[in-house]
Design a protein around this nucleic acid. Sequence first.
DNA 1: TTTTTTTGGTATCGCTCCGATACTATACCA
DNA 2: TGGTATAGTATCGGAGCGATACCAAAAAAA
Lengths: 195, 195
Amino acid sequence: MLKNPIVLLDIVDRLANVMRGEFRRVGGEEGLQPVHIQALLFLQQVNRFSNTPQALAEYLNVTKGTISQSLLLLDRHGLIERYQDDIDKRVVRLRLSPLGEAFLDESNPASLWQSGAREISAHRIRYCVTVLRAILFEIQNLTGGTPFGVCNNCIYYQRKSQRIHHCAWFGERLSGPETRKICRDQAPKSSSLTT
Amino acid sequence: MLKNPIVLLDIVDRLANVMRGEFRRVGGEEGLQPVHIQALLFLQQVNRFSNTPQALAEYLNVTKGTISQSLLLLDRHGLIERYQDDIDKRVVRLRLSPLGEAFLDESNPASLWQSGAREISAHRIRYCVTVLRAILFEIQNLTGGTPFGVCNNCIYYQRKSQRIHHCAWFGERLSGPETRKICRDQAPKSSSLTT
DNA sequence: TTTTTTTGGTATCGCTCCGATACTATACCA
DNA sequence: TGGTATAGTATCGGAGCGATACCAAAAAAA
């Protein structure tokens, strides 16, 4: 059956279009475009190894020049902060400003999605996440794209004890919340679908 | 657990961004933008009740003025045909031209997605489709959006015999292939998740 | 019927995303 | 130490997109 994947693609695309419209509506009050909302959501969820313009550009699949302009606008609006990396002085680090965090908290761009998914069980959500992650990872392999993913789903993630988390790739200890954030250098474990 | 839906939204958005980039690549050779590829794919899959600019605009979540320009471009490229509706003379009907069909066949914008989903079983794909459809339908209810969906998943779809399909909404007989196309006036059956 | 309102689509304008290119500064390497 | 690669910025042009105004046809109202 060749057509089912296409049906899935249709739904994914349409959901994204709907959310894009929602982001436009949410951001309109602040003069923000959908892409800016996506950028803010990215910064809300990315870990401290991946909060750079380059990573954001790859995540949103745009060029670094493009994202540079978007960041300029977000900076002018006071929604993000940019600071130089200590070690590599070429690298710019990004984070939400208090204003940016407040904006996300108040406007909650994902609230429509959350409402729409309210009746879906956590198990079904997780199932979909697993399947879509597998597709995304495979596509990233095919196109050579950066394999973004959640930290604790990575082969370099090590849980040394109840409270000690460690990344074998960057060689640094991780806090508990950090292990649930998005990382750009992710090498996912072989997926273990539950059905 | 409030965060899992957000994770799913992230993946849906990112998959859409990746495919958007792929559409840009595919369409670039013909001078087409991602939105034009999406429009062609829509026309490839929509049924004869829903092949209008208005429906396409709602599907892609853009205004009718915007989609009118996109259709103008596709028409200039000879990829679509526009013709007047017999009954309501305000309505413009759309269809892929032979050139448009050939373009989709040759370039196959969804091939990357198909490759990425190759290893996923049909069952898992269907499962995801069902869940995402439920979310999409719920969101459409909340926003008052048009409930697009596949014809044979609609409460107005009636299978009168092995080969006789009927739509109780439009009051017309349907061919077998038609029942698998997208319709804009869809009222989905209560979802029956298989797990 | 005639008039009014609604609806589907088009045309035009301005804004801003976005890719492409060129450029700077830092880091890495031989 | 000089050459290359990389992270980011600046600038330009093309094009999507929303907003508005407009037209024609249908539907509703009077």
